[in-house]
Design a protein around this nucleic acid. Structure first.
Lengths: 218, 218
DNA sequence: TAACTTCAGTGATAACCTCTAACCATGGTG
DNA sequence: CACCATGGTTAGAGGTTATCACTGAAGTTA
């Protein structure tokens, strides 16, 4: 994805500043969450005054949308790289957990509380289905795990979201379980709901993963 | 002076206004999320001007904390009522889903993206463990489901969070699985990550629940 | 080289927001 | 009746997003 075309110096400058704005934005988000992101504060910290940022982003919303896009892209790339390296479902799970722990607020930007009425642009949902496709590949490679469930038959008739992926219903079912269960464990961990409870979140995650891959342990 | 009964008319008026403030706050949160909650807008809608609200809440933070407290309380009561009525794990799960769908933003106030650095006051965490206790009761009543898992033995040595509850490790494990799995399915559903995917979130939830109660289906 | 065009960054301004301070009216209580 | 705690007001400090007209510098073209 390194497009190093010979652009005009102006364009390179512009790209550079845009990148630095996003850099500062991520710092702010990591420190105080996305809701506390302030264009003004970013500008001040970059040594320029407020309205200058509007040359680079049409407003706060566009900046945040861009950050969400980058977050999705980052996860898709992480999954893609793992898949390229021959990762199975378990390896994908660990990649996911590593990615989440690396920057919890980035995770929440993707999977956290949504703003009512907000709809992500199409290119972002495209990245989401890219992620899902990678997951489906891994789930299709899993050994079969018993007779079809009622939910399998439901999915059989509602598999539009798999977007033509040839995975059998059981794989679709397991991809969804992968997603929802690991998100459940991960988001509660990142949100701090386990702090002070004493047990090790990593072991809970591992147990859930074992269950998903057929080693029933939870 | 806190003689429980007969309150002065002033105190009753005060309670009334506080309640209406929270009412409006919930409306705003449902419409645009907690981050868009504005004291000013609430005041205007109540026909009084801005600073008046500070007679009732020391600031935005206290109002939000109060709403979070009410949300926890509401869930604890829902669980408590179900439990009182003899609810098993499945009934608790349906109570949870009903409660969540009733007001998604209320759910996210409890289980959504946290603000870095924010720590809930003790009385709120107390309500959280009340909820957990109810869940543990139900899980302890579940029939045993096979040999102890590695995670069971980990929990055996880290069961402080159960707060003296006599449930066996397998019950602790299943309570955690109940919590994380249903939260995973529910939060993704409420956040709209399933919209447009075609399948029915209720069936996914039901499948996860069946799995939790021993009817392996996911 | 000189003239022209494009564009980044500026300050001023409007419209919000939270929250403090000072002030006033009123209703319950001594 | 007099008092004063209580709940409301306006004014204002300091923050935010965002728009506007303007300047000055950089890039482009004749």
């Amino acid at each position: 994805m390194v497009s190093s075309e010979a652009k005009s110096p102006r364009e390179r400058y512009r790209a550079q500043v845009r990148a630095e704005i996003k850099e500062r934005a991520w710092e702010q988000i990591a420190a105080a969450g996305a809701s506390a992101l302030s264009l003004n504060a970013i500008a001040k910290r970059m040594g320029m005054s407020g309205p200058a940022l509007y040359r680079y982003f049409s407003g706060r919303d566009e900046l945040i949308t861009e950050l969400v896009r980058d977050a999705y892209r980052s996860l898709a790339d992480t999954f893609g790289a793992a898949s390229q390296a021959g990762a199975d479902v378990a390896a994908l799970a660990h990649a996911l957990r590593g990615w989440a722990l690396e920057d919890p607020q980035r995770y929440f930007l993707v999977y956290g509380t949504p703003v009512p009425g907000y709809h992500a642009p199409d290119d972002i949902t495209a990245i989401a289905s890219e992620i899902m496709a990678t997951l489906l590949d891994a789930c299709a490679a899993l050994p079969s795990d018993g007779p079809a469930t009622p939910f399998d038959t439901h999915l059989e008739g509602h598999r539009d979201w798999a977007d033509g992926h040839p995975a059998p219903p059981a794989a679709l079912r397991r991809a969804l379980a992968f997603w929802t269960r690991l998100h459940g464990a991960l988001s509660l961990e990142l949100a701090g709901h386990f702090t002070g409870m004493g047990f090790d979140p990593a072991q809970l995650f591992a147990a859930e993963l074992d269950d998903l891959t057929g080693l029933r342990s939870v």
